[in-house]
């Protein structure tokens, strides 16, 4: 549901920039006002959401154990999939965040006549998920060259690595290709796999289109329409130094690219993209499996009415005595 709606929304956003910049000449608005507003929304929204999560306590230790527990000394524990120490838990989280450990387990279920059930190899989501996130990260870091003067050394190294192929001029970045390929894969998977399509919401397609066009506008600027990089850097530096300037002569394509980024930022805290923060707070992953070793405290633990032994004995005393069961009191 919502493919068209999401696609049209993104196109409408770009059209708005086109009209705004080309026709109405709102360079300052799209170059300065919107970015600050988006950044503020992102920061405030992100922090607000994380605080909202953090404010709710974790009353119970509900770790999902995905490997052998710590038990008798001669039983080999799976210290990363079922950690019982803080170090192990950090290791588990690192695997989740850096390598998508849980997604790596993914399989695909197949039904065959019989019935005979099969669970097939299915790592595509894991592979393209990783490719997508890492290329996104690299692209993000590469963009720092616009926002910092002098450009930090690691950004140069990254550019060097990324441009390894030495194809074309300006040099082709591998991550650009990967990024577009991965976003396309994620989109196609959503559309082609009937189950995934059935569960998808507009809010699942929207970020994909947003990212796709973010990437595409970027690529066009770099390889085809050749935006004036010096002026863009002037604008970017102006923003981060709180000294906004809007150099003239930057093409409308740049404003589109920049606006889509702003939309992404502003949209982020209200969307599923918050999985970035949420994964760190997920109680089934971020706690050691140690509740039998160390008591986990629930801050709102309140007493409940129980049926006490005394009440129980009162109910059954005669029968207990007759059956020779020990009692606390011979009669009420």
């Amino acid at each position: 549901m919502g493919i068209k709606f999401s696609l049209l929304s993104v196109i409408a956003l770009m059209a708005a920039v086109f009209v705004g910049v080309k026709v109405a000449g709102l360079h300052y608005f799209f170059g300065v006002v919107v970015p600050y507003a988006a950044l503020a929304t992102f920061l405030v929204g992100f922090i607000y959401r994380v605080l909202l999560w953090a404010r709710s306590p974790v009353p119970f230790n509900i770790t999902t154990t995905s490997g052998q527990q710590q038990s008798l000394p001669w039983v080999k524990q799976n210290k990363l999939d079922n950690p019982s120490t803080t170090a192990g838990t950090i290791g588990r989280m690192a695997l989740e965040v850096l390598f998508f450990r849980s997604l790596f387990r993914n399989t695909k279920y197949e039904y065959h006549e019989g019935p005979k059930l099969r669970y097939q190899w299915e790592k595509w989501l894991w592979i393209f998920g990783l490719l997508f996130h890492y290329s996104f990260l690299v692209i993000f870091l590469r963009h720092l060259r616009f926002f910092a003067e002098p450009v930090p050394g690691f950004v140069h190294s990254l550019e060097g690595l990324d441009g390894m192929l030495q194809v074309g001029l300006p040099g082709l970045y591998i991550t650009n290709l990967i990024f577009i390929a991965a976003v396309t894969f994620l989109f196609l998977r959503r559309v082609v796999v009937p189950q995934v399509r059935y569960i998808s919401l507009p809010s699942d397609y929207f970020p994909l289109f947003l990212l796709f066009f973010l990437g595409v506008t970027g690529i066009i600027m770099r390889y085809f329409s050749k935006v004036d990089v010096v002026k863009v850097k002037e604008l970017a530096l102006g923003i981060v130094t709180f000294n906004p300037v809007v150099p003239s002569g930057i093409g409308v394509l740049f404003y589109m690219h920049f606006f889509l980024l702003c939309v992404l930022l502003a949209y982020f805290p209200f969307s599923k993209l918050m999985h970035l923060g949420g994964v760190f707070l997920s109680p089934t992953r971020n706690m050691p499996n140690d509740p039998r070793m160390r008591r986990h405290v629930n801050p709102w633990n309140y007493p409940v009415k129980v049926h006490t032994y005394e009440e129980y004995e009162d109910d059954f005393r005669e029968k207990m005595i007759e059956a020779g069961l020990p009692v606390e009191k011979e009669s009420k």
């Binding site: 999560w53 599923k272 997920s282």
Partner: peptide
Amino acid sequence: CLNKYRSLRVFMDICVRCGACSDK
């Protein structure tokens, strides 16, 4: 429940509907 259980709050917000769980 949202105020008492972080699990619920986080789980309500962060599902990306990737479908990895669907056939499990």
